[in-house]
C-alpha cells in the first residue's frame, strides 16, 4: 500500500509539473476551413417537435452545430451528451445545436428518445430533400459546424473527437478557453483510489 501511495504521489507530482509547463489541454480547431474557402450552408425549413417551422437562416449570426443523426445510430449516441454539454455551456455565447433526426418512423421514434436522453437543444425532423442539399448524408452522424455568417466552417462524417468539436466551436465564437479533463482517469483519482 505504501508503494502504491508513493507511486500515486509521484504521478501527481509529474501531473503538476506537466500542468505547470502546459497549463491547459489544447483543443483542436485545425479542421476548420479557412474563411475564404467556406461555402454558404444551404438554407432549409423543417418542423421541430412542437410542429413549428424552423429555418436554418433563423440562426444567422450564431455559430450552429448542425447534426444529422437517428435514434438507431450508435455513434450518434456517443456524441449526443457532448452536444448537450456544448449547448449548455455556449448557448449564451451565440451558439446553438440543431439536431436533424433521420428516423423514418418520425416523431414516434424521436420524441421518446429526446425525453429519455434529456436533449436540451432543438431537434428537427429531416427528410431527403434536406439531406440532398448537404451531399446526401448517407452516413450518420454527419455534422456541419456553421459560422456566424451562415457558412460551412467544417464537415464531419462519422464519430470524431469531442475536442475537435470543442476547438471549432471555441474558435468560431472567439473564446480562448480550453477543455477540461473529466472522468476518473486523472492522477487525483489514482491518489484517491490508493488511499482506500
Amino acid at each position: 500500500m505504501k508503494t502504491l501511495k508513493s507511486m500515486a504521489l509521484i504521478t501527481l507530482a509529474a501531473w503538476g509539473l506537466l500542468a505547470a509547463c502546459s497549463p491547459s489541454i489544447p483543443v483542436d480547431a485545425a479542421s476548420l476551413r479557412v474563411s475564404q474557402d467556406r461555402k454558404p450552408a444551404p438554407d432549409f425549413s423543417l418542423k421541430d417537435a412542437s410542429g413549428a417551422s424552423v429555418k436554418l437562416s433563423d440562426y444567422r449570426g450564431k455559430v450552429v452545430l448542425l447534426n444529422f443523426w437517428a435514434t438507431w445510430c450508435g455513434p450518434c449516441k456517443v456524441e449526443i451528451p457532448w452536444f448537450i454539454e456544448f449547448q449548455q455551456q455556449y448557448k449564451d455565447h451565440g451558439f446553438v445545436v440543431l439536431g436533424v433526426a433521420m428516423d423514418e418512423e418520425g416523431w414516434d421514434a424521436v420524441k421518446p428518445y429526446m425525453t429519455d436522453r434529456k436533449l436540451n437543444y432543438r431537434v428537427l425532423l429531416g427528410n431527403d430533400s434536406v439531406t440532398q442539399l448537404y451531399g446526401g448524408v448517407d452516413s450518420l452522424p454527419t455534422t456541419f459546424v456553421i459560422d456566424k455568417e451562415g457558412r460551412i466552417a467544417s464537415a464531419h462524417v462519422g464519430l470524431v473527437a469531442k475536442n475537435e468539436y470543442l476547438g471549432e466551436i471555441q474558435s468560431l465564437l472567439g473564446i480562448k478557453t480550453t477543455s477540461r479533463i473529466t472522468g476518473n482517469s486523472s492522477p487525483l483519482a489514482v491518489l484517491a483510489g490508493a488511499g482506500q
Binding site: A70, W72, C73, G74, P75, C76, M102, E104, D138, S139, L140, P141, V157, G158, L159
Partner: peptide, 12 residues
C-alpha cells in the same frame, strides 16, 4: 438491414 461500423452508421 441497418449497418454500422465503430464510427458511423448507414441508413436502413
Amino acid at each position: 438491414y441497418q449497418a454500422c461500423n465503430s464510427e458511423m452508421c448507414l441508413r436502413p
